[in-house]
Design a protein around this nucleic acid. Sequence first.
DNA 1: ACACTTTTCAGACCCTTAAT
DNA 2: ATTAAGGGTCTGAAAAGTGT
Length: 241
Amino acid sequence: MTDPHQPAPPRPTSRDVARAAGVSQATVSLVLGGKWPGRVSEATARRVRESAAELGYRPNLAARSLRLGRTRTALLVVPALTNEFFARVYTGAAAVAAEHDFGVVLYPSPDGTGPARDPFASARASLDGVIASSMASDALSALHGADLPLVMLDSDPAGTDAAAHVNLDIADGMRQVTDHLLGLGHRRFVHLASAVDTWTFAVRAGALREAVDAVPDAEVRTVRAPLDVRAGREAAEQALT
DNA sequence: ACACTTTTCAGACCCTTAAT
DNA sequence: ATTAAGGGTCTGAAAAGTGT
């Protein structure tokens, strides 16, 4: 039974592990950091691991970051996770990050208005990189000049100074959809477009227009609607009537 | 004496708080 | 107002240990 009024016992440090294993703190660091082969004997390494397990030792990440000047943390900036697509983006990013011993912190850009306060003031100091959707550009502008490596999702490859871009082949997808419908004999299209003006939507619209224009008697009309299901349904119903 | 392996030392990281 | 200490971890260099 633990007394909630008693302060928690101090967390064991690498020094405690070293004392328990009868080695120096440096040896603990080597062993637990996986850099011991060739530097520390097998028997010593085992002793260190056993002591660490016994004490329930976990490295102090703040101290590690202090030493390394890195946090192994990336910020993911996307629109709300209620959108399934971005929920999957997060899952994928977190999985890949974990493979590289990185963590992912999520910043869902508030709907419409952008961040209430600059959420990145501390982020600038505690992040090693940013992954951002172009659809969260409001939030992203707050990061301007943060001097962090930036990976852009779904955005104009020529548009930003990002270190890398990850884009779907949107144009080809749009072409395939349009060709399919044209093949079925359809000729009059409504493009229910987002009212949000981003590169990814412009590419879709361009590919659609191009595919339709290639067929002499086909036509496309564009209707814009806010980017949510209810508004989309209303706009679709209106277009159909 | 020498080569090689294993372990330790010492300083850097950067910010906060206490002491001067 | 300025200086010094402390926090935990990591790593290159140095020291200690072992075997031939």
